[in-house]
Write a protein that binds this DNA or RNA. Structure first.
Lengths: 248, 248
DNA sequence: TTGCTTTCTTGATCCTGGTCAAAGCTGACC
DNA sequence: GGTCAGCTTTGACCAGGATCAAGAAAGCAA
């Protein structure tokens, strides 16, 4: 009964992109069943390392709940975050045996996993999965390139504003679509993690957060709860082209 | 006659990844023939803009000769290079109508092009092409993330050393595989383009080039011709983990 | 040759963000 | 309650790279 499978799949793994973006819409139900059999869940606690650079990776996965980060490290220990995995994001690389980055859970994380080998075999047989993964990877590449612009050319204040607007947008995309108007959300990152993401020190992050608060761009109910009185005002601080919506 | 087609294809488009990495090895010859019919060439002069952000893109392409760059721009004109297209690199995004970046030829460039729509249709039918594109995109994503580490955490001197070693490696990969020993190559970028890539100003690039020369890490026959007496010495200056070769 | 343009180098000065240091908060555990 | 650890803020000072400004070098046309 494909219907039953679909329902349980949806319930258990509502955010899994493999389900709703790659499989259900376009593939036949026996492929869905195959995926369903392969799937298993893993949980990680906040702070726990999911994989170290160079570790053998026997599975690919998609984040169901929680937030994980990808980081790279220089010889002397300087670190740079290179990716943020939010619910529905995909992790792992078909065709690659070892992790290319350190993967760390910054909150408690649940992932929907598939063993790599059978997943790769399934990709061979069901072209829509690799087409969907291509789309997702291209999106990630775009995001990485936008981040390069941020790292290379933005000021500390612009970097903070950009990060806040990105988190706000992703966090609130379900709650309200409109820009403008008040917006509230929790910061899922420590000041240090923000610094690693932005290529700054945690002191600079803290100072710029205080500055944005002093200037009335944001309000801080607690250290991790942000309230944005005017979202457009925040966007003005990012340095981005504001009329860039037409590029899509 | 598939053989004849293959030969002409190789001759005219030796560096095209669509040919030797995605098609020939795994697909049937009628698909090769279909690709062959679709293909056409375009040339651009040094300095010419291939596409502006937001332009309609009716083709995808792969670089045959020359070098092109992808750049992004902030509201006030600050620019950051986000990609370097060398021979065999792929340009364009199946499924996307408009360019996401400014694409500029920095030297004279020849590209092997395919009209987007038929190319997309072919992707639907020949899964190996999208699988190969997925692999290539994942490689690009890795490169972008390595670049994020550079932009976020490296010093000016380390950035220059990294760029030189990357260009040297790609340029010389055919000539000599070994590290260590003397290495010569031409810089295909102006100081300004280097600065845009590294998130620096051109003055800083110039100063650091002079410093590396003064310290004997590189020699400058002319402003664009680099000679590296000891490649390992240059690698030491990049700040990267030197024993990172096992990650594959 | 001369003049003109583009690219590159070098110097002087400034300022953003890093570094070092101290102290304030907050929550957990006893 | 007290204590401790982790996270955050703030201050003082410093330095790496940006900015502003001249000029040098190289390429090119007349």
């Amino acid at each position: 009964m494909p219907t039953t499978q679909l329902e349980s799949f949806q319930m258990e793994c509502a955010n899994c992109p493999i389900r709703h973006r790659a499989v259900c819409a376009r593939c036949e139900s026996d492929e869905l069943a195959r995926l369903e059999e392969m799937k298993f869940y893993r949980s990680f606690q906040a702070g726990q390392t999911i994989a170290w650079t160079g570790d053998r990776m026997d599975f690919v996965a998609s984040v169901v709940t929680g937030i994980a980060t990808l980081t790279q490290t220089l010889e002397d220990g300087r670190t740079q975050m290179v990716g943020l995995l939010l619910p529905s994001d995909f992790m792992g690389r078909p065709g690659r045996e070892r992790a290319a980055y350190d993967v760390t859970a910054t909150t408690d994380v649940t992932m929907c996993c598939f063993r790599r080998k059978p997943f790769e075999e399934m990709m061979e047989k069901t072209p829509h999965v690799s087409q969907r993964l291509l789309e997702m990877t291209l999106d990630e590449l775009d995001a990485a390139r936008e981040w390069m612009l941020l790292l290379g050319r933005k000021t500390a204040r612009e970097k903070i504003a950009s990060l806040l607007s990105i988190i706000a947008r992703r966090d609130a995309s379900l709650k309200l679509a409109k820009t403008g108007g008040r917006l509230e959300f929790d910061l899922p990152l420590t000041r240090e993690a923000m610094a690693d993401y932005l290529g700054l020190t945690l002191e600079t992050v803290s100072r710029q957060m205080s500055a944005l608060k002093r200037d009335g761009v944001i309000e801080l109910a607690s250290k991790r709860h942000i309230s944005v009185p005017d979202f457009d005002r925040l966007l003005d601080e990012t340095g981005d082209d504001t009329d860039g919506g037409m590029l899509a």
